[in-house]
C-alpha cells in the first residue's frame, strides 16, 4: 500500500497515462457509459476525484467492478481524457495488494460448472481484470 494519497494520486496518473486535469466536467463520459446508473461514482466524478486526490475513497468504490472497459468514455471525451484508464489504474491499486484479488483461481471451477456455454474468453478476461 502506498502511504499517502498524494503518492497514490501520482501512481494512478502514471499508470493510466492520462491527465485528469484536462477534464472540464462536461459529463459526456457518464452520459455515454452503459453501466453509469449502476455506479456509485460515475465516470466524470471518478475523474474529478482522481484530480482531487481522493484515491482511498475510489479504492472502495463499486464502480471499479462495474466498468465494462467498452471505451465509450475514452472515444467520446471531448478533452482526450481516458476515464476507463483511470478506473483501471485504481482497480490495479486494489488488486495488486496482497490478498485483495476480486476473483481467484479457486473461484473458476465452480463458475465453469455453472454454465457449460461460458466461453474461455469470459473467464480469461474477467481473471485479467479482477486478479493479479
Amino acid at each position: 500500500m502506498l502511504v499517502d494519497e498524494k503518492g497514490m494520486q501520482e501512481e494512478v496518473i502514471r499508470m493510466s497515462g492520462t491527465e485528469p486535469k484536462k477534464c472540464m466536467l462536461c459529463g459526456k463520459c457518464s452520459a455515454t457509459c452503459p453501466p453509469s446508473m449502476d455506479m456509485d461514482v460515475r465516470p466524470h466524478r471518478f475523474v474529478k476525484n482522481v484530480k482531487a486526490g481522493n484515491i482511498e475513497a475510489l479504492m472502495e468504490s463499486e464502480s471499479l467492478w462495474k466498468c465494462l472497459s467498452c471505451f465509450a468514455c475514452v472515444e467520446r471525451c471531448p478533452r482526450g481524457v481516458e476515464p476507463a484508464s483511470l478506473v483501471e489504474a485504481v482497480r490495479l491499486l486494489v488488486i495488486r495488494q496482497q490478498g485483495k484479488n476480486y476473483l481467484t483461481a479457486d473461484d473458476i471451477p465452480e463458475l465453469i460448472a455453472s454454465d457449460e456455454e461460458i466461453p474461455q474468453q469470459l473467464i480469461v478476461s474477467a481473471f485479467r481484470k479482477y486478479s493479479k
Binding site: 452503459p34 453501466p35 467492478w65 462495474k66 465509450a72 463458475l111 469470459l122 474477467a126
Partner: peptide
C-alpha cells in the same frame, strides 16, 4: 456499437442483462 457487458457477466449478470 454499444457494449454487451463483456466480462462483467461473470460478476454481475443482472447488469449485463440490462445492457
Amino acid at each position: 456499437n454499444e457494449c454487451c457487458g463483456g466480462y462483467v457477466a461473470l460478476d454481475d449478470p443482472a447488469l449485463v442483462q440490462k445492457v
